[in-house]
Structure formats: structure tokens, C-alpha cells
Amino acid sequence: MRYAMAIDTRKCVGCSDCVVACQTENDVPIGFCRDWVTETVDGSYPNVVIELRSERCNHCDYSPCVRCCPTGASHIEDGGIVLVTKSKCIGCGACIQSCPYEARYSHPDGYVDKCTFCIHRVRKGEKPACVAVCPTKCMYFGDLDDENSEVSTILKNRKFKALAPEAGTQPHIYYLV
């Protein structure tokens, strides 16, 4: 089992519904977010390329955040989901430093918080809130080890990239380009 997400940058319209859905589903405190949308503009008029990306924790295979955690609060669950155990987190901030994607933040209650791939929904067979709510259906979630899963199928048929693989993290959010 290896959960992953593929996001179609050509279908995304940047509405930020995924962001709001996550904040609601996961009780994210006001002013914080576990996922966010960026717009990258390349070139200058009239030759401009725009890429919209819904970003979040990449649930890396070789996750520096898990490696540097002094207490083991950051850990990898079945299916490769990277989680933080609140009651073990001391809030030292090492994992926030270690993430090349700035995917973690310090929760006002002190512990470090981040995307969980909505593990509570996924375990029930549902999709993560962001995927479920996307109006353009541009996100695909599933098991990479299962050849017929939605995410495996789309990655077989489309060109894709991951963010900063040169950071050595082996990220698992794929962007269809």
C-alpha cells in the first residue's frame, strides 16, 4: 500500500475549494492551512505560461521530517502517510525546518500540524476532503501499488512531475502537466 495523489495542473482553476474543505474537515485554526494553491507565471506577455498547483505535504518516502524528529512524534503510518502524534510532539520546530515544501506549521496549541491525507476518511474508504470537493475533479487519490487505482491509471497515461525531487525526499504528490 502506498497512497499518493495526482493533481491535474491543466484542469485546476485555482478556486481554493480544496483549501477551505481541508480547513473545515480538519478544524484547521483560522489563519493556517494544510494545503494551499500557488500560481506560477513563467515568461512575459504575450508568451506566458501559468501553472496552478494545489500543494500540501508530499508524504515523502524518504521524509526528512520523520528523520529529524527527536521524539518519534513524526512517523510514517501504513500506506506511507506521514503523521504527527500530538502527545509526543515537543514543538522544537526541527521538522518545519526540514521540509523543503514548507508543508508544516506550528499549531497555536504548540504541536506541529500538517496534511494527514485525511487518514480518518481514507481508512473508511472515502477520499480526502480536498479531493472529494474539487469542482473540476482535477485530483486523483489512491494506492500506487494497485495498478488499477485511479492514481496509477492517470500516471500511466499522462506526463507528470513532482516538486523538488532533487531535495532527495521522494515526494508523492504528482502534478500532471
Binding site: S16, C33, Y105
Partner: peptide, 12 residues
């Protein structure tokens, strides 16, 4: 030129 902005207004 490459420019990146947060569409969702992220400011943690």
C-alpha cells in the same frame, strides 16, 4: 521571468 504567488492567500 518566473513569479509565484499564493492564490489561496497563505500567510502562516
Amino acid at each position: 521571468m518566473k513569479e509565484e504567488i499564493f492564490v489561496s492567500g497563505r500567510n502562516i
